[in-house]
C-alpha cells in the first residue's frame, strides 16, 4: 500500500516537517506576490487564478485525502458555485457577503441530497456517478439557458461589493482570495488533527474496520462530501465574481480532470501538496498553452506518467527525498 496513491498520507515525522516547511514557503511566497507584481497587473491576475485553483484543489483533497472517495466530477460543484453566485449577484445584490453565503447554503442542501445516494456506493460506482454528475451540471446550463446564457456563458455579473464597497483593484482581490485560501488551509490542517479528521482517515484506511469500531461511515463520508463540495462552490463563486463572467467550460470534464491533476500531482491527502500542485499547474498551463495548441496532449500524457511513476505525487516524492536526506545526515552524525 505504501507506494500507492491511496496511502500517500502517512504520519511520519519527515512528512510533518516537510509539510511545515512547505506551508511556510507557500504562505510567504503567496503573501509576497502583490509586492513584486506591482508593475505587471497581468501577473497578479494569473496569481489570483492560481489561488482560486488552489482552493478547488484543497476542496477535492478534503474528500480524496480524508475518506478516500475519488471524485471525477468535482467541477460540478465549482461550476455550480460560479453560476449560482453569478446569478445571485446579477439578480439580487452585488454584495458578496450575501451572495456567497447564499451559494454555500444552497450547495450544502444540494450536496447533502446527492451525496446521500453517492456515498453509499462502492468506490467504482461512486467514481462513475461523480463523472456523470459533472456532465449533468453541464447539461443543466443548457437546459436553463434562458437564465444561464447557455452557449454564450453567464455575462454581465456586476462588480461585487464587500460591506457595500466595490471590489475592483486587482491587489484587493488578490488579498481576499489569498485570505480565503490561507483560512481554508489552516482549517484543513485543524480538521485533519481533530477527532473528525482522524475518523475520516480511518475510513480511507480501512472502511470495514471503521464500521466495526462503531464509526457511522455513511454519515462521516457524507459529511466529507458536503464539506468538499461546499468549499469547491465557494471557489467557484469567488471566481465568478472575480472574473465577471462564467462559462460552461467550468463544468467540462477537462476541468474536473485538472482539479484531480492538482491533487494527484501534489500528493493526495497532504493538504499543502495539492495547493502547490494547483499553483504550479495553473501557471505552467498559462505559459505552455501560449506556446502550443496541443496543451491537452501534454496534460493527459503527464497525468498518465505521474500515475505510473510517482503515485505519491511530487510532494510525496519530495518528502521521501527529504527523509532519505535526513537519514543520511543522521547516519553521518552518528
Amino acid at each position: 500500500m505504501s507506494d500507492s496513491l491511496a496511502a500517500s498520507a502517512t504520519l511520519s515525522r519527515d512528512m510533518v516537517r516537510t509539510t511545515t516547511y512547505a506551508l511556510v514557503v507557500v504562505a510567504a511566497l503567496g503573501a509576497s506576490v502583490p509586492l513584486w507584481t506591482g508593475s505587471m497587473p497581468f501577473l497578479l491576475i494569473l496569481a489570483s487564478q492560481a489561488v482560486i485553483a488552489a482552493i478547488v484543489a484543497l476542496s477535492l483533497d478534503l474528500l480524496m485525502g480524508s475518506t478516500g472517495l475519488l471524485s471525477f466530477g468535482h467541477a460540478a460543484w465549482y461550476g455550480f458555485g460560479a453560476y449560482l453566485t453569478g446569478l445571485a449577484a446579477k439578480l439580487l445584490t452585488p454584495e458578496m457577503l450575501i451572495v456567497l453565503p447564499l451559494t454555500l447554503v444552497a450547495t450544502i442542501v444540494l450536496a447533502t441530497i446527492i451525496g446521500f445516494v453517492l456515498v453509499r456506493q462502492i468506490g467504482k460506482t461512486f467514481a462513475i456517478l461523480t463523472l456523470a454528475l459533472g456532465q449533468i451540471m453541464f447539461a443543466l446550463v443548457f437546459v436553463m439557458s434562458g437564465v444561464t446564457g447557455g452557449e454564450d456563458g453567464l455575462q454581465g455579473i456586476p462588480v461585487p461589493k464587500a460591506f457595500g464597497i466595490p471590489v475592483v483593484r486587482p491587489d484587493v482581490w488578490y488579498w481576499i482570495l489569498y485570505g480565503v485560501l490561507l483560512a481554508a488551509i489552516l482549517a484543513s490542517f485543524h480538521i485533519r488533527r481533530s477527532p473528525l479528521g482522524k475518523a475520516w482517515l480511518a475510513i480511507r484506511e480501512n472502511t470495514e474496520r471503521a464500521r466495526f469500531i462503531g464509526l457511522d461511515t455513511g454519515s462521516l463520508k457524507l459529511l466529507s462530501y458536503v464539506v468538499s463540495a461546499t468549499l469547491a462552490a465557494l471557489a467557484g463563486g469567488l471566481f465568478a465574481l472575480f472574473n465577471g463572467a462564467a462559462s460552461s467550460d467550468l463544468l467540462n470534464w477537462f476541468e474536473s480532470g485538472k482539479v484531480l491533476m492538482y491533487v494527484v500531482l501534489g500528493g493526495v491527502g497532504t493538504i499543502i501538496g495539492p495547493v502547490i500542485g494547483a499553483a504550479v499547474f495553473t501557471i505552467t498551463e498559462h505559459y505552455v498553452s501560449s506556446i502550443t495548441n496541443s496543451w491537452l496532449i501534454y496534460f493527459g500524457g503527464f497525468f498518465v506518467l505521474i500515475v505510473i511513476v510517482a503515485p505519491g505525487g511530487l510532494f510525496g516524492a519530495l518528502s521521501s527525498l527529504w527523509s532519505r536526506f535526513g537519514a543520511s545526515r543522521r547516519g553521518a552524525a552518528s
Partner: peptide, 30 residues
C-alpha cells in the same frame, strides 16, 4: 501502460484511464 499498474489499488486504474482519455482526446483535437 495498464500492465504497469496491474497490482496497484483501484484508485490508480481509474486515474490512469482518465488521464488516457484526456491524452487521446488531445491527440484527436490535433
Amino acid at each position: 501502460v495498464f500492465a504497469r499498474i496491474r497490482d496497484r489499488p483501484m484508485v490508480d486504474s481509474l486515474l490512469l484511464t482518465f488521464g488516457l482519455a484526456l491524452l487521446i482526446t488531445g491527440v484527436l483535437y490535433e
